[in-house]
């Protein structure tokens, strides 16, 4: 009886994990099975015919899968760089400098935290259309150039940096830029890492905004590409479809498994911090 009580939690957790992980397993299994085994619903891990190469080949040739990944990388990095470049100095000024309108700006930042991008999509889309910028990388990135969340997060983190070190640096002749990037941000590297994960995961996986501003398949980021791909395949070849899905989810899953702590901290910091 005692042994059962001891193992019961593992049993429950194991059953739950089976359901949670089933889609990943099924995705990978189908992606290495031949299309002929499509009616085989067994979960046996070794396919009768090993068709991994064929499926992935088809996923990469039917649609420019590698191009989607590259687009995703460009968009994510572009967004992240501008977000950090604009949020860090603003957060530093809000946390450590005095200027008129400081309180107002902080209030606006917190108010903006509640406004989802989907609510701003319409006017931003109209604006980009008027400027003839639809179907560009810029259009995909522009609405995310300012991350109020990054400003909020860095502001919280920078505030705890000792004022005396900043003053010592001023007396030593550091410029405010050097203090901001070289000293204060260096003291908040865990926040920077967590935010980077948060930002990259969010934009790698985002479908709504690319779907609005991109119609050119060559500019599509992975989720939009996946949508195109499943339309093209329309259920005909599940092996290739699953290979495509595996390719698109792989970068985030691999990064997650490698840096599990950072990922969990980064993605959930909206809640804990």
């Amino acid at each position: 009886m005692a042994r059962v009580r001891q193992f019961l939690p593992h049993l429950v957790l194991g059953a739950g994990a089976f359901i949670v992980l089933l889609p990943f397993y099924w995705m990978f299994l189908t992606s290495i099975r031949s299309p002929a085994e499509i009616f085989d619903v067994s979960l046996w891990p070794i396919p009768k015919q090993f068709d991994m190469a064929v499926n992935y080949e088809r996923a990469a040739s039917q649609v420019p899968m590698m191009r989607f990944m590259l687009n995703g990388l460009i968009v994510c990095l572009g967004i992240l760089i501008v977000q950090v470049a604009t949020a860090v100095p603003a957060a530093y000024a809000l946390a450590k400098l005095n200027f008129p309108g400081r309180k107002l700006l902080l209030t606006l930042v917190i108010a903006a935290l509640c406004v989802p991008i989907q609510a701003l999509a319409l006017p931003l889309f109209v604006g980009l259309a008027k400027l003839d910028l639809l179907n560009t990388y810029f259009a995909m990135m522009a609405p995310f150039f300012l991350s109020v969340f990054a400003i909020f997060l860095f502001h919280q983190s920078f505030r705890s940096y000792p004022d005396e070190i900043i003053e010592a640096a001023r007396m030593d002749g550091f410029s405010e830029m050097e203090i901001c990037w070289g000293l204060v941000l260096r003291g908040s590297l865990p926040s920077l890492a967590a935010f980077s994960v948060f930002s990259v995961v969010a934009h790698w996986n985002d479908l709504y905004w690319p779907m609005i501003v991109v119609t050119d398949i060559n500019l599509a980021p992975p989720p939009l590409g996946m949508l195109f791909f499943s339309d093209v395949e329309s259920g005909a070849n599940y092996g290739a479809l699953m290979a495509g899905a595996a390719l698109i989810t792989a970068p985030m899953i691999v990064c997650f498994l490698l840096a599990r702590r950072h990922f969990i901290a980064g993605i959930t910091m909206t809640g804990v911090k």
Binding site: P162, E164, I165, E167, A168, A169, R170, M171, D172, G173, F174, L183, R186, G187
Partner: peptide
């Protein structure tokens, strides 16, 4: 500016650059 005054200051918390 402080840096142009050529003064040295020792702070209560010492304010050493941690990195």
């Amino acid at each position: 500016d402080p840096s142009a005054r050529n003064l040295a200051m020792v702070f209560q918390s010492y304010a050493l650059y941690p990195h």
